[in-house]
Nucleic acid binder design. Structure first.
Lengths: 253, 253
DNA sequence: AAAAAACCTGTCAAATCTGACAGGGACCGA
DNA sequence: TCGGTCCCTGTCAGATTTGACAGGTTTTTT
């Protein structure tokens, strides 16, 4: 058997194995936060944030088509970043999307002429997030993708840190997929809360009349929302719409 | 950070990390076989087999409610084992189900008076599978569970071997879930091939008339199979049946 | 303040689904 | 050989969905 040339120390590898195993059982947002805190013991950082969704759609529609899971990032930071569309000027994000590999904030800054004056770097410095990493899982158009940022005053910039992220982040992404089942698709198809609501009841086999009694609205109103959901999902009828909604996690059994 | 007291050597931990990462992308049976062969480099064995399905249902209905994925086990062995219902007399399987921990064949044999004369052990010896391990993931009634057997002339019986399985098997189980999406549920609900077939077309939004044209059967025949599928799935109508079928992986989008 | 989006409701006809009656043949396992 | 299972088909009535016309109010965003 070929020997490994991995930069991961033994204790890191064992911690990551346990994290990978425990990520399988993760199904709620608090559990997901717990995984991020577990990761912090292997690779210290002050805060993390994950942008998730359909990367292709995010390119078209920007932040409106993306979700965020915030684990300790300063809310003002996130607000300014999103409102100004800074993902379009983020050198670290760009270099990650281009290379597919973990990107260190400082390393990227030094790589680009004028990197120090970049608006995102200035925002980083304003909030004391002088260093950190970006890494994620980027899938095809229409699939769930993620980009994580782990930031702080300083971080380990070595190949070991990159290796930690390369092993941890795919499992964190799988866990996040389970936690967020459906939210990406609701965003993608632009379904309104009423449309999702009626789909849930249709999925349970209720007739439009039964749903109207349950929701206290007219049968006509229910049919109106069902028809809108069918159209937005590109379905042929309500059965087809339910199939799509269940498959995409918009509604659960 | 607390130091680990894991029996896993560094190189094993790294190999398992890569196995765990690659298991995420596994979605076909050949890829799954590839993962098993990868595992063999960490923990040598001659052959493996996985019994999967709903453990509760398997207790009720035996082998009829269980699937098998065979990676090198002698077919005659598997045939004799299944036909004689040897899972009910398998001390290794029993000890695994009781403890939830990896069980070594020889260790179990020595633990039980008369273990050497056990029919499964005799079958093992007849086929040269003198040693090996059993380990799996057992979930609640109605959920996908697995039990893997890794066997050969001899295997590593140390705590290291058990630790390898404890880290590898959960990821193999998740991979197998993806590979086998739905087969467990078809078994569980007792759906016939025609019932699954019409569900696929209904799921795509086709009317019974359209499906009858596609399949070259009468519309009455299609409705008959749809109604049977609805009843077997315990659904209120075809829309509800499709929701269940998609959720359980019986049909895919 | 204005525009857009979301939500709500009525009526009617045609299409489709559901339930219930009727009947049959082929194949497999005990 | 017999019983069970799977698959196939016809007819009919009532229930539900679908599509298309008509109209409205409230909330949110710019």
């Amino acid at each position: 058997m070929a020997t490994h040339t991995s930069p991961l120390p033994h204790s890191d590898a064992l911690s990551l194995l346990e994290l990978a195993r425990d990520a399988i059982a993760c199904s709620t947002e608090p559990e997901f936060h717990g995984l991020i805190h577990r990761l912090r013991r292997v690779l210290p950082f002050d805060c993390a944030v994950c942008a998730w969704g359909d990367v292709g759609l995010a390119m078209e529609k920007g932040a409106a088509a993306t979700g965020l899971v915030d684990v300790g990032y300063p809310p003002e930071y996130v607000d300014v970043y999103v409102r100004n569309g800074y993902q379009n000027r983020d050198l670290v994000l760009r270099d990650f999307l281009v290379t597919g590999e973990p990107q260190n904030f400082v390393t990227v800054e030094k790589r680009h002429p004028g990197g120090r004056r970049n608006v995102v770097r200035r925002l980083d410095r304003d909030h004391g997030l002088l260093d950190g990493w970006a890494y994620g899982v980027v899938n095809a158009y229409g699939e769930f993708s993620s980009v994580f940022f782990f930031a702080g005053r300083q971080t380990d910039r070595s190949a070991r840190a990159a290796a930690v992220l390369e092993h941890a982040v795919p499992h964190l992404t799988e866990a996040l997929k389970r936690v967020l089942r459906g939210r990406a698709a609701v965003l993608r198809y632009g379904l309104t809360p009423c449309e999702v609501e009626v789909l849930k009841w249709v999925k349970d086999g209720k007739s439009s009349w039964e749903i109207s009694v349950i929701l206290g609205k007219s049968e006509r109103c229910v049919n109106f929302h069902v028809a809108n959901a069918v159209r937005k999902l590109g379905a042929a009828n309500r059965t087809h719409a339910v199939a799509i909604a269940v498959a995409k996690g918009i509604v659960d059994l």
